[in-house]
Write a protein that binds this DNA or RNA. Structure first.
Lengths: 363, 363
DNA sequence: AGTCACCGTCGAAGCGATTCGAATCGACTC
DNA sequence: GAGTCGATTCGAATCGCTTCGACGGTGACT
């Protein structure tokens, strides 16, 4: 392995000079710098990470803690993780992957050993057990998500409340007055995961303000679960004309079930989703949706962290940053069908018909 | 920050003694060890990662390179990544997250700087540009996936050839003689991603050996693409009675389209998938499937790596390890329908019928 | 011409562990 | 009773880099 000293000898300067060429912390004359650069290139020198971390007490590593349970929002999680890694590299940092399994102690470990300078936490619970650790010995940290009490913490998240409001607004604007919400699995609410509850609040508040009736049902993933929930919804509220879905695994089952029961989307029923753009666009009916800006979330988290790391004077990096949601109109939302009139049997409850289609699809 | 020296002073021993207590590389008397342990505990000592890496030239970090494009197999990717992180921790290693973006140079960087001791590569192409780097200056590495020429490399993967064979075997055993394969996006084959081609080979070989006609069609994700592919398949081979799907985004669209065209699964058409178990189980028809053992893959990769790292004498850690696939029978596969006879209009081409269903689902 | 800044570079002192040879202390052998 | 051996523990060197104070030289200013 090539060391700083060898580079120095090769370039005919002292080790410290090479170091300063690399860090730019002191002025080095142009010819010298050129010479050193050439030697570095020629010898293929790479500074030793450990030695560097030891001497400077800066590891240039950010720890990223992803939840262990991969039962939720998986594509978004990975997208955020990749965005974090990419953004971190752009700032010269590397990313250490931590799973939730070790819990709060993992934070102490990587932080206390100087392995990581800072941490990014994903999938934050309203009352997260990792927060006390952060507030106490607090390594610099950014949460992706919003806990119940964000005081003193730095958080980035989508404004899910606004996202919920946006959905209702869109549907109400089209004329809908009865909306059903198909939510995340009950467990998600039980864990008090912030985004789910905030979305719900946004939905409810805006519904109340717009004279819209709202029905919310948590829902496990999978076809059968969705079928059950859907049946109950139509049972309780036969007049429901629009759905808001915040559960990636419920989307296709929902669309399939609507189709099978003869409800056309968007002619008979509108559907709006809160999910990754790609999923919305690829659904069997391209869905009007509020996207979860995974890339942006990851990038912002890193940017905030790095800013706090490089300028420790500006202590005001804490605080909550909520990204403004955007609703993309696709093919799944439209005005409610006209009220039932003679000769038009299909309004709230579509007609019963045979179940089978005939020719091959697309023909 | 607490240092080794402070612990030593507190325990009344020398620094080296503390070090040996920690590493166990030399015998330490019981009372001393106890005393040192107590001091460590009391002071909350944590060894400095950088210093340790410098002195021992072992960073206890494994780099994990995930592909940048997150357009494929996302859930599996994340599951493997998490499994790798978990397994690595069990061996006392941490995991550094690298994206494919930086390409081969990222390998040189983390490896040359001593940041990571070894690497795990995911999403390996048949002719991967990262392989030369590995073969040349070769840091210890394990590939998850199988390149064209695995000579001198350590690889772990599912035996996709066997997986393909297993699918055909299962369907042929049920009596099917015409099978259509809905594959990954054309781009995946164009990139020569090993697993896709190997699965295909397994399918074809076994089909040839079992007197089964096979039709393979790559397929983009999303409803429309699947519709097009499906139409072409039925056009060319009206007698197709079974599908093998290796494309997570095509599964639900396929099921939906089959339903819509009046083909019941498994009565009229059988479907077998190669995908994550969870997806197969949660599909609108629980799918008979060959699972991709993500956890196992991640764990094996780490185990191999750690073994090679701790016992450098046994140089035989290279070589290919293919996990044996297992087929789980669920609800989507069954014998083909009896040949058409008078009064039974539905055989290869189901009857044309009205499109709408009537009552709410589940009622 | 002498002094003062200042620029560019050097030398040396750490950073906090690991590791190897050597020292210490009883116990035991001859 | 001196020498030896084994079990422990200590001291010092080392890993490769950063950083701070110091030093020589040049140009400006008086």
């Amino acid at each position: 392995m090539v060391t700083l000293a060898e580079v120095a000898r090769h370039a005919g300067v002292s080790a410290s000079t090479v170091s300063y060429v690399l860090s730019g912390k002191r002025p080095i004359s142009d010819p010298t710098r050129r010479r050193v650069r050439a030697s570095i290139e020629q010898l293929g020198y790479q500074p030793h990470a450990g030695a560097r971390a030891l001497a400077s007490s800066r590891s240039r590593i950010i720890a990223l803690m992803v939840p262990l349970r991969t039962d939720m929002y998986v594509p978004v999680m990975l997208e955020i993780a990749v965005a974090v890694a990419t953004a971190a590299r752009a700032h010269g940092y590397d990313v250490l992957l931590l799973t939730g399994e070790e819990g709060p102690s993992a934070l102490r470990r990587v932080t206390g050993s100087g392995l990581a300078e800072a941490v990014i936490l994903m999938d934050v619970q309203l009352d997260d057990e990792r927060l006390p650790v952060l507030r106490a010995a607090g390594p610099p940290a950014v949460l992706v998500g919003l806990p119940a009490d964000p005081a003193g913490l730095s958080c980035v998240d989508l404004d899910f409340t606004a996202a919920g409001a946006l959905c209702v607004e869109h549907l109400a604007g089209l004329g809908h007055r009865e909306i059903a919400v198909i939510g995340e699995a009950p467990g998600v609410y039980a864990r008090h995961t912030g985004f789910a509850e905030r979305t719900l609040r946004g939905l409810r508040d805006r519904a109340a303000g717009s004279g819209v009736r709202l029905l919310h049902r948590p829902c496990e993933g999978g076809h059968d679960a969705v079928a059950g929930v859907l049946a109950r919804i139509f049972d309780e509220r036969p007049g429901v004309g629009a759905f808001v879905v915040q559960n990636e695994t419920a989307i296709e089952p929902l669309l399939a079930l609507l189709r099978r029961t003869g409800r056309a989307v968007p002619e008979d029923v509108s559907v709006v989703a809160v999910c990754a753009d790609q999923i919305a666009a690829q659904a069997s009916v391209p869905l009007t949706s509020v996207a979860i800006p995974a890339q942006e979330l990851g990038r912002r988290a890193v940017d905030r962290l790095v800013e706090g790391l490089t300028r420790p004077d500006a202590e005001d990096t804490s605080g909550v940053e909520l990204l403004t949601p955007a609703l993309t109109v696709r093919d799944s939302s439209g005005p409610p069908p006209p009220p039932a009139r003679p000769g038009n049997p299909r309004s709230a409850a579509p007609p019963h018909g045979a179940r089978a289609g005939s020719h091959p699809p697309g023909s």
